[in-house]
């Protein structure tokens, strides 16, 4: 299978969308772009953890270097960054919970003989996604209020 697939891609004009399809792949609806949002927030959290570990490394330089770095991190730009991390965490955690359930086939319903106009299982259960998004917005607003006050 590998050889034939690779062979045909070499013979003809390659047309694989690649990673750019995460950003824009076509006129799809909500779930396709939640897929992108989940990945972006995941990568953002990974970046945060890496930076967090690097910043903690300043403790090895003694109290003065730790105080210096804390002063820099206390600037408003970093506060916005911290809020974005919290928001990314909320999105990733709640959407991840939905994905875990749906990856195991829960909340998707049973297969049905297709009757036109076709509505697939994800679209039938879209209220679950709307409820999740509402919860994300509510939590993000709550965290924003906590950050500001």
């Amino acid at each position: 299978m590998k050889t034939k697939a690779a062979g045909s891609e070499n013979r003809h004009l390659p047309n694989r969308l690649g990673i750019k399809s995460w950003v824009w792949g076509g006129n799809y609806t909500l779930e396709r772009y939640l897929y992108t949002l989940h990945r972006v927030t995941g990568l953002g959290l990974l970046l945060y953890i890496t930076l967090h570990l690097a910043m903690n490394g300043f403790r090895l330089g003694g109290v003065e270097s730790w105080i210096d770095i804390m002063e820099i991190l206390g600037m408003s730009g970093f506060k916005v960054g911290e809020y974005l991390v919290a928001a990314a965490f909320i999105i990733h955690a709640l959407n991840g919970g939905r994905l875990i359930l749906q990856h195991l086939g829960y909340t998707l319903g049973k297969p049905k003989p297709p009757v036109y106009p076709y509505v697939d299982s994800l679209r039938r259960r879209r209220p679950i996604v709307w409820a999740m998004l509402a919860l994300i917005v509510a939590l993000a607003v709550y965290v924003l209020i906590v950050f500001v006050t």
Binding site: Y28, E31, R32, H103, P114, V115, V119, D120, L122
Partner: peptide, 16 residues
């Protein structure tokens, strides 16, 4: 498969 759901959205026969 990370459940983007685009396959089911595009399917012209309602296969899901």
């Amino acid at each position: 498969c990370h459940l983007a759901g685009a396959c089911s959205e595009a399917c012209p026969k309602g296969v899901d």
